[in-house]
Design a protein around this nucleic acid. Structure first.
Lengths: 256, 256
DNA sequence: TGTGTCGGATTGTCGGACGATATTTCGTCC
DNA sequence: GGACGAAATATCGTCCGACAATCCGACACA
């Protein structure tokens, strides 16, 4: 090959449907259309952009998929706030495909939990505390049922996330949670003393949050997650295995 | 209306294009088709699913948008690993729409930075260290240019992320980084002593990582981010303002 | 070996169409 | 005049068929 004196930028023509999506997205992000406001029917967009309806449809599908627009009961399109679940499940998918290991998950979850607990201890509202208390009571009543306890555990941690009052943290945590807590069911069904320990940890966490005791919160969060790790290993799993296997076995969590 | 004794679950037929997307996605996630392998042409998918090409196209657009399939030079569709940037920019977008505040960002970034530094101190490879050293030297040479320093700062932190060897952490961090570091430019151009302090922090961080000194790493990461916060406030901004404003003013970072 | 040409395959875009639903309009009846 | 129900309308999901642009591979040619 002869050496190129001047390198040319790679030619890249953007297809029309992407331009449509980007145009709408830009308008939304810049605040031109606020969440809840209608975005116009397909026919109107066809007229405005001067492209075929098929093209418009391919474009809006992308935004719809991202959750920044939504069809309301009218069937008309309206701007909406993307819900966390949606993003989390995407990220989770990426993690599966990238074959990240449980160790990576554990490490990240630890950092995020500690920060979340801290936020919750400082900012939890009485209503949140009450909801968590309720969750704990329900957990106590189904202590023998691994699946039920796992589900309540997941709910409990989601509550802490909400109570932290930090949506960035919540957004960062959710994908990991989506992977960590499903394995809890697996662990609880194999490790007998798991459920009582989990309940005890939840109780102490709530107490710490209620008292605004950051240090106690961090301590128990650490213990709680370490319990998870020990249980994970004791139930015959290796922290360095990729998450894909278990994740698939447990079934995909597809939020509609 | 007569009262319904039994409430029926709301009927909800999933549109065909979504079914197409889900079917392909499931096959990919379960490992049926590995990254790099072709997925078939549109015509083939039309035959297999028994729906119209328009419908197939709407379906594959979604997966293509998520980055789990890609068109290769053949124009044929192939499975691919979703790149982090793509997810990060989605998440960033969500943060803007949800009007999260800089304080939330700061808090989350702090937790994630500390964890990342820790991982990097334990696992950074010589090649990564060298790249970081190079970044520092380049930074020293453009110390007067706020934009250049900010870009190199962003690069430096991306390197730490990679060096941490924890992809979950990286995935969690990237969206915050995408929002924190752009504001660095703003800060550096208003706070004179910012650039030298930033450089100093980078030097100490690298030293800590090189020496595997976790505590020093955490210390300097904390200082570094606190500098960012102080600079942010000193340049006339309020931590409790939503990120939307500045983010838009600085322009959208649209990858690809 | 490197270059022009041709045919087939595939995609991006288009125009038009139909049935199913939800919304609106409007006439009827009290 | 207002409530009610039916008809007209709007909108979406899906389908069909079509065309140009582009890419790939093969083949001839220098």
């Amino acid at each position: 090959m002869t050496e190129l004196a001047e390198k040319f930028r790679r030619i890249h023509s953007t297809p029309a449907y992407q331009l449509v999506a980007e145009a709408i997205e830009k308008r939304i992000l810049s605040g031109g259309i606020r969440p809840g406001e209608p975005i116009g029917t397909e026919a109107e967009l066809v007229k405005q952009f001067g492209v075929n309806r098929s093209t418009v449809r391919e474009g809006i599908r992308l935004l719809e998929h991202d959750g920044i627009i939504q069809r309301q009961s009218n069937r008309r399109l309206a701007v909406s706030l993307p819900h966390y679940d949606r993003l989390a499940s995407r990220t989770t998918r990426a993690m599966v495909l990238h074959e990240v290991t449980f160790r990576e998950l554990y490490e990240a979850a630890m950092a995020l939990q500690l920060a979340t607990i801290e936020g919750a201890a400082l900012r939890a509202t009485p209503a949140m505390l009450e909801a968590m208390q309720d969750n704990i009571e329900r957990t106590a009543q189904v202590l023998g049922d691994a699946a039920a306890v796992a589900a309540l555990d997941s709910e409990f941690h989601a509550m802490i996330g909400k109570a932290s009052g930090n949506r960035v943290l919540q957004l960062a945590r959710e994908p990991s949670d989506l992977l960590v807590y499903p394995t809890t069911k697996l662990i609880l069904s194999k490790v007998k003393e798991g459920a009582p320990r989990l309940l005890q940890a939840h109780r102490m966490l709530l107490e710490a949050i209620r008292g605004g005791d950051v240090e106690a919160g961090r301590l128990w969060a650490r213990r709680h997650l370490n319990d998870w790790r020990k249980g994970f290993e004791r139930s015959g799993n290796d922290l360095d295995q990729p998450i894909a296997g278990i994740y698939l076995r447990e079934g995909l969590t597809s939020p509609s």
